[in-house]
Structures are given as structure tokens and as C-alpha cells.
Computed example of a mutant assay.
Amino acid sequence: MVTSNPHATGDFVAQALQDKKDEQGTLRRYRGTIISVVETVVTVLSVVLSFGLDLPQWVTVAAVAIIGCAESMGIRVYKPAVTSKQQQMVREAIAAKIDAAHGVSERPL
């Protein structure tokens, strides 16, 4: 059964993913999380500051809308990094396809 043998499940694909992951820096690996945290902090700060400045309500709403659009655009252009979880998912998917093609089941007889 291929699913029980991690070395038989498309090592070339797993190695390509590992190489891609090794090329990435730590900042790139956590860029999505960093973008979300920064956007959340900016949104909260803009709302808190607007309450303290007695600005018209439409200014607060506009600021939140602009920040939300900026976050959406940031996510749109964001290219996710390769993760260990993705590597494992690909390995398991390849193993399941190979087992299915050979009529092998994971269930013991």
C-alpha cells in the first residue's frame, strides 16, 4: 500500500515542494498572517481615533471601507507560501490516487 509508505508517494513532487519551501524566508512564510494583523490594528486604530476626534460618522465609515478595500487588494495580490501541511496533503493525495489506480484499499482485510 502506497499510503503507508511515504517514500513511494511522488518523491519528486515532495522534493520540489521542499525545495520551494527552503527558498522562502521566514517573512514570506508568515506574510499572510502579518498582512491580516496589520490591517486589523489599522482598522481598530482608525475607529478609536475617530471617536476621540469627534469626526462625522461618514468619515469613520469611509476610513473603515477604504481600509477594508486595501486589505482585500493585499490579499488579492498575496501569493501564499509553501507549507509543511501542504506538502503532507499533496503526499497523501498522490498516495491515495496510486492506491486507487492499483485497486488497493487502506482498510485491512
Rank of each mutant, 00 (worst) to 15 (best):
M89G: 01
A16T: 12
E23T: 11
S84V: 14
M89I: 10
Q57W: 15
L49M: 12
P108E: 13
P56A: 15
A62H: 02
A93S: 11
K79E: 12
I66Y: 01
S4F: 13
P80R: 11
P108V: 10
E23R: 14
V90C: 03
Y78E: 08
Q18F: 03
A96E: 07
Q15S: 12
S36R: 11
G68Y: 02
S50D: 03
I98D: 01
V41P: 00
V2W: 02
T26V: 14
A93M: 04
E71G: 11
A96K: 09
S4Q: 08
H7I: 02
A100T: 06
M73L: 15
R91D: 00
A93G: 03
Q88P: 00
D99Y: 01
D54F: 15
T33C: 05
Q15T: 05
P108H: 14
R107G: 04
M73W: 12
S36E: 07
K21P: 00
L49P: 00
P108T: 12
G52N: 13
L45V: 06
D22R: 13
F12I: 12
A62D: 03
T33L: 14
V44D: 02
V61F: 07
S50Q: 05
I35A: 05
S105E: 14
L45R: 05
P6S: 08
V38R: 12
G10I: 02
L27D: 07
D19I: 07
M89H: 10
T33H: 09
S105G: 11
I35S: 03
Q57S: 13
A100W: 06
L27A: 15
S84I: 13
M73Q: 10
R91N: 02
K97G: 04
V82K: 12
G52W: 15
E71I: 04
Q15K: 11
I75H: 11
D19T: 05
Y30G: 07
K97W: 08
Q88N: 09
K79P: 00
G103Q: 03
L109G: 08
I94P: 00
H7R: 06
V104S: 10
V64K: 01
G52L: 15
D22S: 14
Y30D: 04
K97F: 06
R107S: 11
K20A: 14
S72A: 14
N5I: 09
G10P: 01
G32Y: 03
A16S: 07
A8G: 02
L55N: 10
A101S: 06
A14Y: 01
S4L: 09
E106K: 12
V13S: 06
L45M: 13
Y78G: 06
L45N: 03
F12N: 10
R76N: 06
I75Y: 06
S84R: 15
T33Y: 07
V38S: 09
Q18G: 04
Q86I: 10
I67L: 14
